[in-house]
Amino acid sequence: MKKMAFFFFVPLLLTGCSGNEKTIEVYDVLDDAQKRVEVREVLDSNEDVYSGTAIFVDQQLLVAVQAKPWLDYKKEKIEKELTKQFEERFTEFDVLVSADYKLFWEANKLMEEKDQQKVNDKVKKLKELEKEET
């Protein structure tokens, strides 16, 4: 039982140590500084998220976030809240916020991509993947 208690407490301890350093990255072809600031504002204000990547391409906005692992159980709620916030700020964009690791992983890979068309295709594909159910 002692061992079990240990395993339950470790995540709690780590919560205290993880700090506020969020890794937030934005991909934007137009390189609009205003957008960066706004994305940062939204994600910084959300306590449940520790990392996020936003991609602006062709009237589409994909925000892939990672919730803190021990808060993953309210993933859907986090997604809904963020979607609302992003939609309010970026009315002209088609917004998709996802806390799915797959989207986060792929979005980060796109950061280095120069070819806008490729990014566009990939984002569309990711949106389709996101809709798939088991």
Partner: peptide, 17 residues
Amino acid sequence: TYFYIIFFDFTEKTVGN
């Protein structure tokens, strides 16, 4: 799970199978 998410087209929702 991570292997399938990273190397194949599975999301956290579909990776169960």
